[in-house]
Design a protein around this nucleic acid. Structure first.
Length: 504
RNA sequence: GGCCGGUUCGUCUAUCGGCUAGGACAGCCCCCUUUCACGGGGCAAAGACGGGUUCGAUUCCCGUACCGGCUACCA
């Protein structure tokens, strides 16, 4: 009885994919998968002025990284191709004509300059039921004039908003929402270049692609009445999707929608992945490149405006598909908190299996010039340090000394308390370790402490110097864990090296 | 300005009219750790305001305030 669930994400390819955009994708995806439906990506490239090369590919790549692959898209194909509105251009005009023919729309010949002048002259000028009588359009011009202008000048098609009617619809998140048509203006449906505006394109394509549920950002709420009227005027009311207007993601400080600028200003990513503007060649950092795990990114996005009603905060995509419900999506916008975002990543890194971290961590090391040849060692290192890594690049700081000698040794941290007794201890330690046949954490610690006792030194005074010899600074996992992993030769070499540095 | 939407700790949020308003992030303190983290424990921190309805309102209704979105031949 009820039709198949089909949802769509309809971005316009103008740049990087923003947090809010990915969350819209996520909610679409979760709803579709939960209901055994299809998730479609349709590219809304009707504004050639704002079109940015590469943006479409970037968007699809981002979805892939997030694990939110569409069932149908320009890339994946599908039964309702093409999935780019620019390639569907021929579709729209007939519907615009139909609307004009049925009296729901009209041709308007006012030039951009004329409209601009009008807006200057009349504050808050709206092209609507009260003003259209004074403009150049098929409602005010004679039939002959209209015919003549239709062939000789550019024109647009505008919706003829009815007077004083209440448009009511039920939003899945907000409940009943109503608008009076006298407040809404005569939106352009078909532009002078023959391209539809969003308003026409979205209803025509949602109809043609049999979309059952339309989810989009709250910023679209004010134009919902236009779309609903269009569904009605085109005679498709029975097929109209159910609407849900998602709350916005807000700036962490102050108020307003979160924008790319805020990320630049506050030092955190706003785009999912790195985005390089093809014109300015400026790169904006993404969550991926900052070292977020896609699972964590999806998780944190889901929790921005939704929860399952319990205290639980960590969910896999699969769990989200099961538990998600549009009814539990909030009405109000949420300020984005980068600290909390990092917490999600940390939780995911801690909870991830070593194997699933390997390739990402290896990439980070290589980016920093640390060559990984021993993958058994890599796995051990990841297991040892992952609890202390919030973002993937933290592995480099926490673990590169396992693969190569530290670049710098913080000699200044040991020198002030250095004395001949300590020097002697480490010299003896070298010999003891060289002679040792066992190289396990436990044995290393035992030998170290016994030798300290024999020299009447407190182990506590020796651990820090030892740590600095091995890792270069005051950080990292347990010293004996480190010594055990890097091996006898390397341990001895690093002690000797630092001893040499202290001498001078 | 107009229309529409929103409003619980600093932030994200829980609460299907009955509360000592719960959790998480951040903050602070303590423990653990002879580094730094992780971990464990604790402290502090909220119902915008005013009216109703009700035995009882954070929860329902109205108004006010504040915040946001929209108001393009952009999406």
């Amino acid at each position: 009885m009820s039709k198949k669930v089909r949802v769509r994400f309809a971005p316009s390819p103008t740049g990087g994919l923003h947090l809010g955009g990915v969350r819209t994708v996520l909610f679409n995806y979760l709803f579709a998968k939960q209901n055994g439906g299809d998730f479609i990506v349709r590219i809304e490239d009707t504004d050639q002025g704002r079109f940015v090369a590469g943006a479409e590919e970037y968007i699809l790549n981002t979805l892939k990284w997030c694990g939110l692959e569409p069932d149908e898209s320009p890339l994946h194909g599908g039964p309702y191709a093409p999935y780019r509105q620019s390639e569907r251009k021929a579709n729209y005009k007939q519907y615009a004509e139909q609307l004009v023919h049925d009296g729901y729309a009209y041709y308007a010949f006012d030039t951009s300059e004329e409209l601009e002048a009008k807006r200057k002259e009349v504050p808050n000028f709206q092209y609507n039921q009260f003003t259209r009588g004074g403009m150049n359009n098929s409602l005010t011009l004679s039939k002959d004039e209209v015919q003549e202008k239709l062939v000789s000048t550019p024109y647009v098609v505008r919706i003829k908003m009815v007077e004083d009617e209440t448009v009511v619809f039920t939003d899945m998140i907000r409940g009943e929402v109503s608008f009076n048509t006298s407040q809404v203006d005569d939106k352009v449906l078909l532009k002078a270049d023959g391209m539809p505006t969003y308003h026409l394109a979205v209803v025509v394509d949602d109809y043609l692609m049999k979309i059952s549920h339309a989810f989009r950002g709250e910023e679209w709420l004010p134009s919902a009445p236009v779309h609903i009227l269009l569904w009605k005027y085109l005679g498709w009311e029975a097929d109209m999707p159910q609407w849900a207007h998602l709350p916005l993601i807000l700036k962490p400080d102050g108020n307003g929608k979160l924008s790319k600028r805020d990320g630049d200003r506050l030092g955190f990513p706003v785009f999912a992945m790195d985005w390089t503007d093809p014109k300015t060649l400026e790169t904006t950092i993404g969550f991926k490149e900052r070292g977020f795990l896609p699972e964590a990114f999806v998780n944190l996005l889901a929790m921005l405006g939704w929860n399952d009603g319990t205290d639980r905060e960590i969910f896999t995509l699969k769990e989200l598909v099961e538990k998600f419900s549009m009814e539990r999506v909030h009405k109000g916008g949420a300020k984005f908190d980068y600290e909390k975002a990092k917490w999600y990543n940390h939780e995911w890194i801690k909870g991830s299996e070593v194997e699933s971290l390997e390739s990402g961590v290896k990439t980070e090391f290589e980016k920093n010039g640390v060559v990984i040849t021993d993958h058994t060692l890599l796995a051990k290192v990841i297991g040892l340090v992952k609890d202390r890594c919030t973002l993937l690049p933290d592995f480099v700081q926490q673990g590169s000394f396992f693969f190569q000698s530290p670049d710098t040794i913080d000699v200044a941290a040991v020198k002030p308390k250095w004395d001949e007794k300590k020097n002697l201890f480490f010299t003896e330690l070298i010999r003891a370790y060289e002679l040792s046949t066992l190289w396990e954490v436990h044995d290393l610690e035992k030998e170290f402490k016994e030798l300290a006792a024999a020299n009447q030194l407190k182990p506590g005074d020796l651990m820090l110097p030892f740590r600095i010899m091995l890792v270069g600074g005051k950080f990292g996992p347990g010293v004996f864990d480190i010594a055990a992993l890097i091996g006898k030769g390397e341990t001895v070499r690093r002690i000797e090296h630092t001893l040499g540095l202290i001498e001078h």
